[in-house]
Amino acid sequence: MSEPLLVVDVQPGFINEFTHHIPQRIARAIARSHYTPLLFTRFINSENGPYSRFLDWDGCNHEPDTNIVPELETFAEEDLIFSKSGLCGLPDSLADYLSKQDIKRIFIVGIDTDMCVLKIAMDLFDISVEPIILTDCCASTAGLQAHLAGLAVLSRNIGAMRLREAGVSDGWLAAPVETAK
């Protein structure tokens, strides 16, 4: 039986030294488990929005930073990409889709564990859709400590039994160190 997978904000604007491994891990997880449907969220930092006004951060406000990363774009169908701004969590259009499809459980992967992944998982929980976080397919742009903090909060709020591994980490908890070729 296939299960839905939600890929949260895996876009070029969030790829750094702490998250560079996530697109490849997600692609491997998709190939192994044949999730369906494959759903994506895309963060778009709106001009004069709270990130710009309060945090002086203007990233992810246009392409290519708002695109789905190249490693995953072949998996993304345009009508299954749900845009969101800020920490709004679960976009209304995605909540409507899940309701219409009668989805009761969804696997979640993505960036940032301590922000958007956490918020969306808790929003899903609140609408009685069981979120299952694939911990080895999530990371935070702020590093391992932020990722672990997000997992700790998720464990408390949605239950530790909902934090699982996809089995694609190759033994690395943090982002693997890239070596010069």
Rank of each mutant, 00 (worst) to 15 (best):
V10W: 01
G171V: 00
I68N: 06
F54V: 14
Q24P: 01
T113N: 08
I68G: 09
T19I: 04
T66V: 13
I68C: 10
D79L: 04
F43I: 09
E77H: 13
A166Y: 00
D170H: 01
A29P: 06
D112C: 13
H20C: 13
P91E: 05
L173I: 14
M1R: 13
G143T: 04
N16F: 09
K84S: 10
K104E: 07
V109I: 08
F54S: 14
S52W: 02
E130Y: 00
A152R: 11
A149R: 13
T19D: 08
P37E: 11
D170N: 03
I111E: 03
I111R: 03
G86A: 04
V117T: 10
I15P: 08
M115C: 13
E78I: 06
D9Y: 05
Y51R: 13
Q145K: 06
I81F: 03
N67I: 02
L87W: 06
E63L: 08
V10S: 05
A160I: 11
P23T: 04
R164G: 00
D123Y: 00
C60Q: 09
G49Q: 07
Y35S: 09
V7A: 09
A160P: 03
N61W: 06
L148I: 05
D9R: 03
I120D: 07
Q24D: 10
Q24F: 01
I26L: 05
N16Y: 11
Q101H: 08
L144V: 14
R25T: 01
H34I: 00
S52L: 05
V109Y: 02
I133A: 05
D170C: 03
A27N: 09
K181E: 09
A139E: 08
I158M: 12
E165F: 00
R25W: 00
N45C: 07
I133M: 01
K181V: 14
E47R: 14
V177F: 07
V7F: 05
S2N: 15
G89A: 09
D92F: 02
V7G: 10
T179A: 15
S33M: 00
N16M: 06
Q101Y: 00
D65P: 02
D65N: 13
A160K: 14
A174C: 00
R25K: 09
A175N: 05
A174P: 01
L80R: 15
P70A: 09
S33D: 06
E78V: 12
F107D: 03
V177N: 10
D96K: 12
P4F: 02
K181W: 08
F43C: 10
D65E: 15
I120Q: 02
N61Q: 10
F54D: 15
A142W: 02
S52I: 13
I106G: 10
V69I: 05
P131H: 08
L124W: 02
G110Q: 08
D136F: 00
L173P: 07
V8I: 06
E73W: 01
D58K: 10
Y97W: 03
D123T: 04
K100Y: 06
A146I: 03
R105I: 05
F43V: 15
N16C: 14
I111Y: 01
A139Q: 03
S155E: 13
N48E: 11
M1G: 15
I68R: 06
